[in-house]
Design a protein around this nucleic acid. Structure first.
Lengths: 205, 205
DNA sequence: CAAAGCAGACCGAACATTCTGTTTTTAATA
DNA sequence: TATTAAAAACAGAATGTTCGGTCTGCTTTG
């Protein structure tokens, strides 16, 4: 594993890929997965068709890499919340949940990721590409939490279960928006939910 | 409001629409919203293009009507749970939530509905058609619950808030499937969640 | 016989992908 | 260090398919 330091070529390639994936994210977030075409991503990224095709030979490859990047980007915030600003707010779990909503889920990246998640429910090819990373990401996320918290239930993996529940609710909240006219309602739901959960996910002693 | 009893023509038209919408539901459930085309719906419904076009001049009209039907179909189960099988199971709220998952959400209809919900997050035209019905459906659903239950929190609409949280979680659960390898895990999450919620949504005395 | 229901061909637009060139970068050689 | 051939990065046209929507007829119903 030489981990050869990146050449000028690699740097440009990485910059190009990042640019294209960023365009893909904003497209998916604003237009939805169904209306996101290669043409539109290309246009939004300000990149020629040849360049895009060179780095991502198929649409699936582009979506897959975009999803991977979103996945790895979403892993950071939880870790940073783990180390940073302890005991600053009301409750660590409450803070974690509220931050997960505002800083991770309810962002262009978070919304785009949910779009891709929904897409790979029915797109088996896409799912096959992402499945492994989704599972390991999930396992790591759950392990991080289990390391710090313990659940109020009987099962020994109760903290993991509760954290999965939290993430599931937060993702669902993105979809619930269309049901209510007042956007403030989502914040109220989030607060109420976090208030309930903080008495079940307890800091390890 | 004459509510003229349906003629033979109307009956046939209704049957045709039902058939097409059913095909749309199974398409959206199995292929996802992005891969659902008029051609495929037509093929699955075993209907000619002319017939389909006659009843639904545009794709949006078809999706909108399909969503309406799903919405009205999803209103029933909650009502039936309200009247039927009281005190049969562990807890009325627990039963209600578990039934909402197995009988409403985790069905072809439920999954298709979520697909449409996700789609109309970014499709403003579709949302404009559905918004009114989504809001009133939501209001009715919440009213039904508030009529029977009271929340553990301070707010006077706490039961409504909690019920919205429940529905949001259940919808999110449909998406969470791709994160875990064991499908049984979803059931565990559902049970744990319902167990928590039953101590916050309380039967009115 | 008028009108609605139905059948299927047809249309331009947009799609993902493939392709032929052109430019730039890399690495090997002198 | 200068030269050069190969490889990679890019540009953009061309291709065949599929899309949603329209249009022209035929059939059934009222």
């Amino acid at each position: 594993m030489p981990a050869a330091l990146p050449s000028k070529k690699d740097i440009k390639a990485e910059a190009m890929k990042r640019r294209i994936c960023a365009a893909a994210v904003s497209c998916i977030d604003e237009l939805g997965y169904a209306e996101t075409s290669i043409n539109r991503i290309q246009e939004r990224a300000g990149v020629s068709r040849g360049a895009l095709t060179h780095h991502f030979p198929t649409k699936q490859a582009l979506v897959a890499e975009t999803a991977m990047r979103l996945l790895h980007a979403a892993a950071k915030p939880v870790k940073s919340l783990r180390s940073g600003r302890r005991s600053a707010g009301v409750d660590p779990v409450y803070d974690l949940l509220m931050a997960s909503w505002t800083d991770v889920a309810n962002t262009a990246q978070g919304r785009a990721f949910v779009e891709i998640l929904v897409a790979c429910r029915t797109d088996r090819d896409l799912y096959d590409v992402l499945a492994k990373d989704l599972h390991t990401w999930n396992a790591e996320s759950v392990a991080e939490i289990s390391d710090l918290y313990v659940g109020s239930g009987d099962a020994d993996d109760d903290a993991a279960l509760l954290w999965s529940i939290c993430r599931t609710f937060i993702r669902g909240l993105l979809i619930h928006e269309r049901f209510v006219s007042d956007p403030d309602h989502l914040a109220r739901m989030m607060e109420r939910f976090a208030g309930i959960m903080k008495s079940h996910l307890l800091v390890r002693d």
